[in-house]
Deep mutational scan, measured.
Amino acid sequence: TTYYDVLGVKPNATQEELKKAYRKLALKYHPDKNPNEGEKFKQISQAYEVLSDAKKRELYDKGGE
């Protein structure tokens, strides 16, 4: 599973699309609303952290993490 899959976006997604997808999923899986989905929330946050940063995203796209 790639970070793009976690957020449900395509690899060519814009920053705005990433932000929108992250917010939607973060609300859905937030531990306050969904106590059993803490791990999913962490995955979503990690994916967004990497993909929202241009340098980290470039490194990730080249095969790094």
Rank of each mutant, 00 (worst) to 15 (best):
S45H: 12
K56H: 07
A47Y: 03
K28E: 09
K10V: 06
G38C: 12
Q46E: 13
D5H: 09
A13F: 06
E37A: 13
S45C: 12
Y48R: 01
K62C: 09
K42E: 08
G64R: 12
Y29M: 05
K33D: 07
D5R: 04
L51P: 00
D53I: 04
A13C: 12
L25T: 01
A54K: 11
Y3C: 05
A26N: 06
G8N: 07
A13G: 02
K55R: 10
G63C: 14
P35F: 08
R57M: 03
G38P: 10
Q43R: 09
K20P: 01
V50T: 13
L51G: 00
P11C: 10
K40C: 09
P35D: 07
Q46H: 11
Y29C: 04
K20W: 11
T1S: 11
G38I: 13
I44Y: 03
F41Q: 02
A26T: 13
Q43P: 04
L25N: 04
N12T: 15
V9A: 03
T14E: 04
K10Q: 08
Q15Y: 13
V50H: 06
E39M: 08
Y22A: 02
E37M: 13
V50F: 06
A47L: 02
E58K: 06
Y3Q: 02
A47Q: 00
K20R: 15
D32Q: 09
E16Y: 10
E16A: 11
K24R: 08
Q15V: 15
P11N: 09
D32Y: 08
L7E: 00
V50N: 04
K10L: 11
Q15N: 13
D32A: 12
D61I: 02
E58M: 07
K62T: 07
T14Q: 03
D5I: 06
V6E: 04
Y22S: 00
R57V: 03
Y48H: 02
K10N: 10
I44H: 01
E16F: 08
P35T: 07
D53L: 02
E39G: 10
D61E: 05
E65C: 14
H30D: 12
P31E: 07
K40S: 06
A47C: 03
V50W: 04
E16R: 12
Y48D: 00
V6L: 14
Y48V: 01
N34V: 07
E65M: 15
K62P: 03
T1H: 11
L25P: 00
K56I: 05
D61C: 03
L51T: 01
Y29D: 02
E16V: 09
K20F: 11
L18E: 00
E37W: 11
L7D: 00
K62L: 14
K56P: 02
E58R: 05
G8T: 03
E49M: 09
T1F: 14
Y48I: 04
Q43Y: 09
V9D: 00
G63P: 06
S45M: 11
L27Q: 14
Y22D: 00
L25H: 04
P11A: 09
P35N: 06
K55D: 12
K40D: 06
Y4L: 02
G38Q: 13
E49D: 11
